[in-house]
Each structure stands twice: as structure tokens, then as C-alpha cells.
Design a protein around this nucleic acid. Sequence first.
DNA 1: GAGTATTTACTCGGATACTCGCTGTCCGAGTAGGGCCGG
DNA 2: CCGGCCCTACTCGGACAGCGAGTATCCGAGTAAATACTC
Lengths: 159, 159
Amino acid sequence: MFLPEGVEWALHCGWLLSHLEPGETLSSRRMAEFYGLPPAYLSKVLKSLVRAGLLEAVTGPRGGFRLARAPEEITVLEIVEAIEGRSPLFRCMEIRQRGPAPATKSDCLRPCGIAAVMYQAESAWRNTLRETTIADLASHASSGSTNRARGWLRSLPER
Amino acid sequence: MFLPEGVEWALHCGWLLSHLEPGETLSSRRMAEFYGLPPAYLSKVLKSLVRAGLLEAVTGPRGGFRLARAPEEITVLEIVEAIEGRSPLFRCMEIRQRGPAPATKSDCLRPCGIAAVMYQAESAWRNTLRETTIADLASHASSGSTNRARGWLRSLPER
DNA sequence: GAGTATTTACTCGGATACTCGCTGTCCGAGTAGGGCCGG
DNA sequence: CCGGCCCTACTCGGACAGCGAGTATCCGAGTAAATACTC
């Protein structure tokens, strides 16, 4: 059971978009080229980010995507949830209520110990992802990676 | 993207097996009956736990499963990994090495910031699951649940 | 030369196939106990 | 009544279908810029 591959793509693209000048956009086609990804599917992934309000899309020539907010205001968790969905990793099916000796209604007011542990672990996972923003990714990236991205962006046909 | 449903089943069955007397076993059929689960598929799930060394299986009449270790020595994480696999939730495809401006070998000695965050979050998730054992689940369970399980176990045809 | 209508090329957006893993099921090998037969 | 043999019933174990989410792709609507034409 893996996270969708699009999550990784979305995070990398978010990082790349944070290196644009204000107001500038970058097309899905360019990003797919930079990372060697299938353009059509990447477009689908980025569309999810637009729906979630994390990216803004500009149609037409010289159009593309840009961050809808400042990089400091976009967390890794938001991007993950935009692609993967807000549904919990662990879904309690309440099997304790089934069978010949089902749990009573009063017992089920609180989640069972198993669900509690799973929810707690998932909360730890989400909290870690929430503590990192796109800006953090950019500031902690190696200078080599940053220079490569900026250089490639400048090499694109201007305007 | 959900965790396999078998994870929940395995955890509940582990909890139930911890209520057996030493040396006693409980068949897959009985457990499926108790939780209202498809017997064949539950058997498949429990088989994974045997492969992982968490459960012991006894074939033949009056056979079944029992915990391979003391409940205090079996963590929730071990059960999850036995079903779901030891592979990480996030799998870095190293897309930074692809495209027209690939990352250099020296840059890739360390994981990129994105992979680092994902691994850190996953580590937090696993650590939480590792801190809880089957014995903890049993001790924190409501008295109602415990009594229901014990009572049902005693109601089974003896020997 | 300047303004304008047209063409063009490029973008995102939604609707449509394909693949693989989780879900679900089945039947076979093996065993422990119970029953039957003989002494 | 007692011992041994056989048989049955029940268990786990591995191999075989079905479905849904993720993967991948295509074409259409819309737009901004560049172009060509007219005045």
C-alpha cells in the first residue's frame, strides 16, 4: 500500500513553482519536461491542487500554474491531502458491533483501543507534515538543486 | 488510499487471542464468527501473521491460532507491518534525477527535502504504533468488551 | 505607419480506457480425536 | 472390559477469480499573443 505517486510530483512541482517570480506562471508541460513525467497525468494531478485552492491556473498561451498563496502559507500536509484525499488512512469498520456478542451502544460512544491507537499514529503523521511548508523545503534544499531549477527556469523562452 | 481492512481484523484477533488460557488455541472459523467476518479471507490474513512469527498455528481438530509471544512483546506496529508490508508508505521515485537538468550523484547522497519530510512523518507514525502492545490494548479495553469476549470464549464447546 | 480583425498556437478542463493490488473464494494436505472392531 | 486400528471431521496452507482505486491518455473550450490586412 503506497501513497499515490502524484503526491511526490505535486510536492516537487510546488517546490519548483516557489522559485518563480511574482505573477509568473509555469505550464504543466514545462514541469513534466523538467521532471521527466507524463504530461497528461501530471496535468490531472495539478488540477487537484487547483481544486484544493493551493494553485492558481491561467489558461491560454503563456499560461500555466502558480502558487495561490505565499510558500510559507502552504504546508506539505495540504498538498498531500489535496491529492490523496482527506479520508483517514485507517478506517474503523466497527467489527466489534458485529457477530453473536456485539458491543453495546454505550460502549461505542468512544472508539475502541485499536482505532484510538491508529488515529493517534495518524495524527502524529499529519502533524509532522503540517509543520513543514513549501518555503521550508526551498530553504533547506541544496544550493545545487536550487541553482539547477533557477537556471532551467531562466533558460526557458522569455515571455 | 486506505490501509488494508485486514489490518483491523488482525489487531482485533490479536486482542481476542490474548484472552486465551496458556496453550489454548482459537480457530479462524470461530474468530470470523465472533467478528462477523468472511472466514476464508480472515484465514488468509491470519496466515500472514504466522509467516511474520507473531502467531502460532496448530492444525487438525481442536487446532487454531495462538500468540507466539507474550502480549507485552507484540506491538501494534508488528501486526500492521505483517499485513501491510514493511515497504514505506512514501516511495521516492527520485524524479529529481530525471529530465533535462538532473541532480548530480553527489546531491543524491542524501534524500531530497521532500523525501526527508515524508520519511520523518512516517517514522512518527511507526513510532506511535510501536509504543503500544497487545497487552496495552487489553488493559485499556472497556470492562464490557473484555467480559463479552471472555464470556463468549467460555460458551464455546469445551475441549 | 497605425489600428483592427483574424488566425494561430498554446493553455487548462473534463471524460474516457487500462493495470495492478486488495478483496473474496475455493479446494487440497495434514492431523488429532472419536468410533469401531477384535481379543 | 481393554487395546489397537480405522475413519471422520476439522484445521491450516496455497492457488485461483472479481472489483475498485490509481495510472495513463485523449480531445475539446477558452484565451492571449502574433500576424496579416486595411486605411
